[in-house]
């Protein structure tokens, strides 16, 4: 329960947990800060597409932020910029106090559709970041084993991805994202390919893994329910060019369960507000 108190930035726990900083009040610098990000892509026809226009985002250490928005609103572009996979055309991003200039071990990425390598076993897949990165590998292997166990994948180390269910594949991808002990985990619609029930279960699993790992997580999703269920905050983005419409705080106690959460008036209020914004 103490874990819940330190990680859940809810109004209720904030009152009882002394010394906890509320990310809405910037007592210390946020872990991630992105200001005025602009990204323009050129298309085959030669017409430029403005994917992001003056995008701002800040995330406190340990915070879980969901970004929700219509297709093509640039949420994946935002993730690619933070992951160092693309460079912005304008604006600045910092992680800690360092500017983000390229990929780094401080950022873990979980891609759409798991992107496990089919020729590697689950174990080979999850330690891939350690093998290509170097560093003190043996020490991290134990941590990876621990994450596998938290993700319920112990005993499946020597299976190949095609022998796993879609949900298990995605959990393995999350473990791989955590392998280097990153400060931040960026997730790009990780559950988009799963059926609705598996997806709900995976949301619960992710909440559990997040509460155990104490990572800062940015989740890109097009599911309003998923965004609220998992997030401390939900950032709502406009259609192209993408910018922030609203930054909403989710005041729901953790750990959350689907049965309880979706009946909570706060959940219903947020869901309605976000839907109105996206429909407008």
């Amino acid at each position: 329960m103490s874990l819940t108190a330190t990680l859940g930035h809810t109004a209720a726990t904030a009152q009882v947990a002394a010394g906890q900083h509320d990310p809405a009040i910037p007592t210390s610098a946020p872990l991630i800060r992105a200001r005025g990000l602009v990204k323009v892509y050129s298309t085959v026809s030669g017409d430029p597409v403005v994917a992001l226009d003056d995008m701002n985002l800040s995330m406190a250490d340990g915070e879980f932020v969901s970004i929700v928005g219509p297709s093509g609103c640039g949420k994946s572009t935002m993730l690619r910029l933070l992951a160092g996979l693309d460079t912005p055309d304008a604006g600045e991003m910092t992680l800690g106090h360092q500017p983000i200039t390229g990929p780094s071990g401080a950022v873990g990425v979980v891609f759409q559709n798991a992107t496990l390598l089919p020729w590697m076993t689950v174990w080979q897949n999850v330690i891939l970041p350690l093998q290509v990165g170097g560093g003190n590998r043996a020490a991290r292997e134990d941590a990876v084993r621990e994450y596998l166990s938290i993700a319920g994948l112990t005993g499946f180390e020597n299976k190949y991805p095609y022998e796993l269910s879609g949900g298990m594949q995605q959990r393995a991808a999350i473990v791989r994202g955590l392998a280097r002990d990153p400060k931040v985990l960026l997730m790009d619609e990780p559950f988009g390919a799963l059926d609705a029930l598996t997806r709900e279960r995976m949301n619960g699993e992710l909440q559990r893994i997040w509460m155990a790992s104490r990572k800062t997580v940015l989740l890109i999703t097009h599911s309003i329910g998923e965004a609220i269920f998992l997030g401390d905050r939900v950032v709502v983005m406009s259609g192209r060019p993408g910018k922030v419409l609203e930054d909403l705080r989710v005041n729901l106690p953790r750990p959350r369960s689907h049965a309880e959460t979706i009946a909570d008036p706060e959940y219903i209020r947020l869901a309605r507000e976000i839907r109105r914004m996206l429909d407008a």
Binding site: A83, G84, P103, V109, P129, V132, G133
Partner: peptide, 8 residues
């Protein structure tokens, strides 16, 4: 992208 994110 995966390999790039890992600085491979």
């Amino acid at each position: 992208d995966l390999m790039k994110a890992l600085s491979a």
